[in-house]
Write a protein that binds this DNA or RNA. Structure first.
Length: 494
RNA sequence: GCCUCCAUGGUCAAGCGGUCAAGACGCUGCCCUCUCAAGGCAGAAUCAUGGGUUCGAUUCCCAUUGGAGGUGCCA
């Protein structure tokens, strides 16, 4: 066996790829790539009842979208296949029986109903239920084989010692040790012939020559038990790296049920995969010797070090993800930005009649999430209703009266503009303003309000006027000026 | 209940016996500016609590509290 690092991401196909899973996959990928090793995808579908149709394809898709390309996997093959556990079903009994023969496991004929009753009883008394090893003692191997041959249903259980300690060493959590007396004789091979996770993970990780086992901390307390299995087989245990969960808040995990987004959801909302990956990498991990936070996948491969991981669960902060997304959007090539932004803009804007490229230029620096775009530009398609109070601006020293004068002043100036370009708009208006006796902002603020109806717009008055075009600008200006006159009768009379 | 694990600002975090306890997001103020955004500057905000160990604890140990996970023929 070579000393090549081999890591694996082993999801069960029970739904979409959630962000905690994505992060586990990312770290697993990074671990392999950093060591120039192999990254493997394995599907753990031994629970046939919980399997969700289509989930496997969704996993492939998400992995590819995230840029987590694996070297071996169900859809691409490899030397250690198959990579779907149900397709490996014939492998497991052999290993289970090996343990039965060596006394590390035994056949159990107790029914689920009997066991459930016992469990409920123990629970009622406030005790922890453990299987009492009844079948280990009362059924000999010969009898077991006879009953099985006769068609009786059975499972194979791990024979955990009653005394002593079981332990393992984790790259993050260090030495974890438990008393065997607290461990239960878990089922290794189910009545349907398929292995449980407890067994399949050990067999497959060994058979697939996995060197680093990464998984969530939900396996932390059962990992000592898995090591018992490695010992029973005489196999070298892998290096373990358990990862804390990603939380919605301090007590709840991120979950679809509460409307928390999955990776797919975030992509659909207009988050860039690079931003998501970058942010998620930093959730519970920090690189050494740098305060930088913006990292490409290549950077992450270079920088990743499991010693930088935090042992505590991390709370997913949408705010910061959005900030990262803004950073990545600003770094986009303008053409790339436009390609992504266009469909969002077309949800509210007509395809023709407006310089969308120019609009995109203005928008790029102000976009945090693409899904915000329609709301940001809707006013360009339809002049919103707005209160004349909007004209009042302390900083621009603008009052309703000044606004009225400004609109009256700018109307003929606009008409005099020979060519409706941003440059001409700017030059002509700026040159004229001093004649008005008003300050620049006292003219431009009301002008922009009058043609956009919004306090904040993705660009200044000239940009907005340019985008709207001469005709629409003048139309909006006149309509707004008219409305303003109604609330300013005295000014009108003066 | 029992077992395992965890604990630095609101959030992500650096720290690894002696620091004025980095940095980022968010928040507040200022600057820039025809609005917003971006950018620049400044500010508020943290070592869960109680015991030890030590000349000295955020850092080491113990307890408490809080939280997470496990306790399935689920993974």
């Amino acid at each position: 066996m070579s000393d090549t690092v081999r890591t694996r991401f082993a999801p069960s196909p029970t739904g979409y790829l959630h962000l905690g899973g994505l992060r586990t996959a990312l770290y697993t990928y990074l671990l392999a790539r950093k060591a120039h090793g192999k990254f493997i995808l394995r599907i753990e579908d031994t629970d046939q009842e919980r399997e969700v149709p289509g989930a496997v394809d969704l996993i492939y898709k998400s992995m590819h979208q995230a840029g987590l390309d694996y070297d071996e996997g169900p859809d691409i093959g490899g030397d250690y296949g198959p990579y779907i556990q149900t397709q490996r079903r014939d492998l497991y009994p052999k290993y289970a029986w090996q343990l039965v023969e060596s006394g590390h496991a035994y056949c159990c004929f107790c029914t689920k109903e009997e066991l459930d009753a016992q469990r409920r009883e123990a629970e009622a008394k406030g005790e922890t239920w453990k299987y009492n090893k009844k079948c280990l003692h009362s059924v000999s191997l010969e009898e077991a084989k006879r009953r099985i041959a006769a068609g009786e249903s059975y499972v194979i259980r791990q024979n955990v010692p009653l005394e002593g300690k079981a332990s393992f060493d984790d790259l993050l959590y260090g030495h974890v040790e438990v008393d065997c007396s607290t461990l239960d004789d878990n089922v290794l091979l189910k009545a349907d012939g398929l292995p449980t996770y407890n067994f399949a993970n050990v067999v497959d990780d060994h058979l697939m020559a996995i060197t680093h086992v990464t998984r969530g901390t939900e396996y932390l307390s059962s990992a000592p038990k898995y090591n018992l299995l490695y010992e029973a087989f005489g196999w070298q245990p892998p290096l373990y790296l358990h990862l804390p969960p990603v939380m919605k808040d301090s007590t709840r995990k991120l979950s679809k049920r509460y409307g928390d987004p999955s990776f797919e959801d975030l992509l659909a909302q207009g988050y860039l995969k690079e931003a998501i990956i970058n942010f998620i990498a930093l959730l519970g991990w920090a690189p050494k010797d740098t305060n930088e936070e913006i990292f490409s996948m290549e950077d992450l491969i270079r920088l990743f070090d499991e010693r930088g991981l935090n042992k505590s669960p991390a709370i997913f902060d949408m705010n910061k993800l959005t900030y990262f997304n803004g950073v990545y959007i600003r770094r986009l090539d303008p053409a790339a930005y436009e390609e992504i932004a266009r469909p969002w803009l077309l949800k509210v804007l007509p395809e023709e009649g407006m310089d969308l490229s120019r609009l995109c230029q203005l928008l790029q620096g102000r976009t945090e999430v693409f899904s915000q775009l329609p709301d940001m530009v809707r006013f360009l398609a339809d002049m919103p209703e707005f209160s004349t109070d909007l004209y009042i601006n302390k900083k621009s020293k603008c009052t309703l009266e000044i606004a009225g004068s400004a609109l009256a002043f700018i109307r003929p100036v606009l008409e005099s503009i020979p060519e409706w370009t941003e440059e001409k708009l700017h030059d002509v208006v700026m040159e004229a303003i001093p004649e008005s006796g008003m300050k620049t902002s006292q003219v431009l603020w009301p002008f922009r309000i009058a043609i956009t109806g919004q306090a904040a717009t993705p660009g200044g008055a000239f940009e907005m006027a340019y985008l709207l075009g001469r005709q629409e600008t003048l139309r909006r200006l006149d309509a707004s000026a008219q409305k303003l006159r109604l609330v300013l009768p005295e000014t009108q009379n003066a």
